[in-house]
């Protein structure tokens, strides 16, 4: 039995980066976008931390599409609220009692740019990192198995619930439930699905925790996993640079040493 049954290499160099490196990149891009603000800084963070990774992983189109989709609802509500209710000197147009101001558009723009960059960074991380690789790496670094299990179970929960929902929907359709057609019919069809999906998810969680208990999951003490994602000094250095760089910029902004970008 070959030892290549241990771990699975990713399809690209970016996929094969240590999960903590990808976490650091996503975290710095997200926090930097929100804390530094403006337009230029988030754009630079996108260009420096998200774009290269997305290109190497051949996921640029998917990252852009998903991040826009994920941030769409919030962006629309931010735009509506900011444009129409934010006070400003320059009125662009009026709708009833609301004045759409240039300042409102600028504010909405700044928020939306941050949202999209954060969504893109997190989407790139999600698409290129197997939850299991992240869990294995955290365990190797001494994280509690319970914490890592909670993380893995959370990341695993949604696809498993979707799988279960498909099965429950098929079973309910076989019993005459209408889940297709107009939006109202689909929404009505959701109601009898929610209960079985949630209950079966809870039952599965209970059984899984018993099965893990039976495999000594609750034991405290060191573990020696057969595989953990590879790491390197170079990646460690990059992680430190990212974190220290962001800290330095934020500190510089706080004391006025770093100018605010547009």
């Amino acid at each position: 039995m070959a030892l290549d049954a241990i771990g699975r290499p990713g399809p690209s160099l970016y996929h094969r980066l240590n999960p903590l490196t990808k976490v650091a990149s996503a975290a710095v891009a997200t926090l930097g976008a929100f804390l530094i603000g403006g337009y230029v800084a988030p754009a630079l963070l996108f260009a420096g931390l998200v774009l290269p990774g997305a290109l190497v992983a051949r996921l640029l189109r998917r990252v852009v599409r998903l991040s826009l989709l994920v941030s769409l609802l919030i962006s629309v509500s931010v735009a509506l609220v900011s444009v129409l209710t934010r006070a400003g000197a320059t009125t662009l147009f009026t709708i009833g009692p609301f004045d759409a101001t240039l300042e409102g558009v600028d504010f909405a723009g700044r928020v939306i740019v941050r949202l999209v960059v954060a969504a893109a960074a997190l989407t790139l991380f999600g698409l290129t990192t197997e939850p299991r690789a992240l869990v294995a790496d955290l365990e190797r670094r001494g994280a509690s198995p319970r914490l890592t299990f909670a993380l893995a179970a959370t990341l695993d929960a949604i696809p498993r619930m979707i799988e279960r929902a498909v099965v429950v929907a098929a079973a309910q359709r076989a019993r005459g439930l209408d889940t297709e057609g107009r939006l109202l019919a689909r929404l009505r069809g959701l109601v009898p699905l929610v209960g079985p999906v949630l209950l079966s998810s809870l039952a599965e969680v209970e059984q899984r925790s018993l099965a893990l208990d039976a495999r000594a999951f609750g034991r405290r003490g060191p573990r020696h996993p057969v595989w953990s994602p590879p790491d390197s000094d170079r990646q460690r250095a990059v992680r430190w640079l990212l974190v220290l760089g962001l800290t330095a910029i934020l500190a510089g902004r706080a004391v006025g040493a770093v100018p605010e970008l547009p």
């Binding site: 241990i6 939850p131 198995p145 599965e204 899984r208 099965a211 893990l212 057969v226």
Partner: peptide, 28 residues
């Protein structure tokens, strides 16, 4: 139910089977 006994924390069958001994703190 086989599905509910999977840990969800491993990427291959080998790692899944190895999980118990790993939890026991055994050597690689």
């Amino acid at each position: 139910d086989p599905a509910s006994q999977r840990s969800g924390m491993t990427g291959t069958v080998l790692e899944e089977v190895a999980l118990g001994p790993v939890n026991l703190g055994l050597s690689v």
